[in-house]
Write a protein that binds this DNA or RNA. Structure first.
Lengths: 121, 121
DNA sequence: AGCACTTTCAACTTTGTGGTTGACAGCCGG
DNA sequence: CCGGCTGTCAACCACAAAGTTGAAAGTGCT
């Protein structure tokens, strides 16, 4: 089972180093060496991170002359954004409907308390 | 080192089961048993997932009468959204500026090719 | 061809994560 | 008060993830 896109994207972005790479790539494409420079980490480790980002579709490395430049791919962000927005929106809708429900809920609660013989303040 | 919020949120949402929980909680609060019902997984495992979501601030479980209901918290989504939007926007700005740059880049490339003695097509 | 640099592959260590089972404390209703 | 449901904690297992080193392919320049 090849782990769906969202899983790959979210876990790719769960790593601070990888998020930092994305942040820097947003300023423009870079070679692997430029990318690797700030980190105290072997070059192979950087390639591994890149591979994760690439498989998640966050980044691409078009073939070309030797120092292949790493490029930020933004389409995947749309997908993540859609997911987030979808559920945020739904939850917020429920929240705004809450006002309308409050009156009824207060009545219910009062009734329940009455049935238990509790004193209203 | 207490792993920053974004790291916790992204890795919380990197798990399909947890994303599914969020999706269902967007429809309304639920008890742990209701939440756990569709999964073929021990109840303790579900509590673990909930703990991860809670520590990431995605979910809250206000204290109360025995079956404590799980509630979706949306503020964290804003933070994620801000991060995504920030870099997406920056990358897209670069992209739109690309048109303006193309003329200059073509000139540069032509010059480089000339210096190498390559034939223009 | 030959050297230097880029890229990838493989093996290994360490740490984290998702899941299990088992035990146990806290509430609540009969 | 006691039996059942809710919630938490701990030990353990399997496996994935981040990093290391070492070695081997490619690619580009002179």
């Amino acid at each position: 089972m090849p782990a769906d896109t969202l899983t790959r994207v979210f876990s790719a972005l769960a790593d601070p180093t990888r998020r930092d790479m994305v942040a820097r790539l947003a300023e423009g494409d870079a070679t692997v060496n430029q990318l690797a420079e700030p980190y105290r980490m072997s070059l192979q480790a950087v390639y591994k991170h890149l591979k994760v980002l690439e498989e998640a579709g966050v980044v691409s490395r078009p073939p070309g002359p030797q120092p292949r430049r790493v490029h930020l791919e933004t389409e995947v962000f749309d997908e993540m954004d859609a997911w987030i927005e979808r559920y945020r929106r739904r939850a917020e809708e429920r929240y705004t409907r809450l006002d309308a429900l409050l009156a009824g809920m207060r009545d219910d609660e009062k009734k329940r308390n009455d049935e238990r013989g509790e004193q209203p303040k």
